[in-house]
């Protein structure tokens, strides 16, 4: 079980997340959604070990003698990999950093991305696939996906999703993803967490989501994607017109 316990964090100004708690079981797939600026990406960064909480704890429940980043695969909301390197050079850097032997990257082959291509010359979608291939190649126990797959075209997105589903079936990692567009990636989620400006407002398994009073108020007839979109509208409305 991976736990965020009363986590507060920020970037030097006022906190972005304040006393937020979340737990994710191994093998569980959680979708985090909510309006812009509530700290969804920051929550992923905290889970990824890229942002230290100013208060609260992160407990991965793994042996502590090893850097937890060995077991985390984090695909951030930008394609921030070395653009000056070639795919095979980046693969080597990544593999050596994790202390892993060379293994094939089937996703790159399926997407016809040559190993000798320079990252900076690839399209944005291809860069995302390269990064995703790298993080899946380490067989992480926690996969963190920050929205970025929505920038990939439907064909490549299908390839990426197949790869994620294969990894999920293979190693049973916990998956936490941030989604604002409730498309194919959101369909993988077993649980939805709605993060609002004042913390987590909703945390329900997908099959019980319709019974949540907040969701019912947002309009059951809209379906889950419509309800979540409506919740984001409501959150913005509440922010503009605080009671």
């Amino acid at each position: 079980m991976i736990r965020l316990d009363n986590v507060t964090c920020g970037y030097g100004g006022s906190p972005v997340l304040s006393r937020v708690s979340l737990s994710v079981a191994e093998g569980e797939t959680v979708m985090i959604t909510g309006p812009n600026g509530v700290g969804k990406s920051s929550m992923l960064r905290v889970l990824a070990g890229s942002l230290v909480p100013s208060k609260g704890n992160v407990d991965y429940g793994w042996p502590e003698e090893r850097d937890p980043r060995h077991l985390i695969g984090y695909l951030p909301d930008c394609t921030c990999i070395y653009r000056s390197l070639r795919v095979n050079q980046l693969e080597r850097l990544h593999r050596e950093s994790y202390g892993l032997p060379r293994s094939p990257l089937p996703l790159l082959e399926k997407a016809s991305i040559p190993e000798s291509a320079r990252i900076g010359e690839l399209s944005g979608g291809h860069r995302v696939l390269v990064h995703l291939s790298l993080i899946l190649s380490t067989r992480p126990r926690l996969i963190l996906l920050d929205e970025v797959l929505n920038t990939v075209d439907p064909y490549l997105r299908d390839l990426a999703l197949q790869e994620i589903v294969t990894a999920m079936a293979d190693t049973k990692p916990a998956v936490v993803m941030v989604n604002l567009v409730f498309g194919e990636t959101a369909a993988l989620a077993e649980r939805v967490v709605f993060l609002d400006y004042d913390g987590i407002k909703l945390d329900e398994p997908v099959d019980q989501l319709r019974h949540n009073p907040l969701v019912q108020a947002a309009g059951i007839e809209k379906g889950i994607p419509g309800m979540l979109t409506e919740l984001i509208h409501i959150a913005h409305g509440e922010r503009r017109n605080p009671q």
Partner: peptide
């Protein structure tokens, strides 16, 4: 310099390097 010009700082920070 390479990390900043490649916008790869965040990636470097996620690698499990001491």
């Amino acid at each position: 310099r390479r990390e900043r010009s490649d916008d790869a700082m965040q990636y470097l920070k996620t690698l499990p390097l001491s």
